[in-house]
Design a protein around this nucleic acid. Structure first.
Lengths: 146, 146
DNA sequence: GTGAATAGTTTCATTATTGAACTATATTAA
DNA sequence: TTAATATAGTTCAATAATGAAACTATTCAC
């Protein structure tokens, strides 16, 4: 491919990617997790899946510092969404888990996530989605090497 | 497609998309725009392309409030990257443009953006990239309708 | 010419983030 | 066994991004 064409493709890629993120974000804020920020929703989702989950896991997963995680978790502990529990074996470690309220919030949010994204994805053919997701995953694996 | 499969695909899509954004962001911070935040780089890029560009344009483009734009532009004006110039016809309007320093910063950043993304995209076939970008754009157009 | 609309700013509160210093605990090696 | 080091997490201070509401200045419409 010629450099010029490639650069055009990069321009298209970056602006499309930005717009997708922006719009998905708006959609999520409006229809999926009104009561949470996008970061909080993502973190809760991760904590729920990982189980047991520590601050360091989150910091690593989202590539942010541990102090940022502490701040975010504090807010959610205050709002009764997350519990902290110290490991009795190794008392440096603090395990995070969803409170019943947190579980409930996430059950509803996840349900709406599936509905909203499902509706959007229904406009694509199965093959198209799979191909797209495959390319995304390939992109992830290349980015991991960098 | 069955609901279960679709939901799995949604899980894969969301986590892949999150990881791509996260890693691209890290890559950009490290190799493309060390001296700027991602938001600032995106805004400068937009101002440069749009020309003439107003605060309202930016607010609309990035789907954020005008007060958020004012705050961001202030920081970049202070750093000598952006100039404000009032329209003499309609004195409510303020045009934004890159200062020579801003232009220089963006010339370098854009160059590095092409290099870095070009290297990553070189691992894909031309057809694969085009298909992926097409799906992205289709996604954008569906999201616009929502 | 007055009232409504538009462009942008100010102010205030919240959230997210980094980096450095710090506490507490566990591990290792002399 | 203890002294040095590593690990897990928190605290603190600063910067950035953001929304909402109140505001200023200007233009437009009737």
């Amino acid at each position: 491919m010629q450099a010029k064409e490639l650069n055009e493709l990069i321009d298209i890629y970056t602006s499309a990617m930005n717009e997708v993120n922006r719009r998905v974000n708006i959609l999520m804020n409006e229809q999926v997790h009104q009561e949470l920020t996008s970061d909080q929703f993502a973190t809760l989702r991760y904590v729920q899946k990982k189980q047991p989950c520590t601050s360091s896991d989150i910091a690593h997963e989202f590539a942010i510092g541990k102090s940022a995680v502490t701040a975010q978790i504090n807010r959610m502990v205050e709002r009764g969404l997350i519990d902290r529990q110290r490991d009795e074996e190794d008392r440096r470690i603090v395990y995070l888990s969803l409170t019943p309220t947190g579980e409930e919030t996430m059950a509803e949010g996840t349900q709406r996530l599936y509905e909203v994204l499902g509706e959007i994805l229904s406009e694509f053919s199965e093959q198209e989605i799979e191909r797209f997701v495959q390319s995304l995953e390939k992109l992830v694996s290349i980015l991991r090497k960098h």
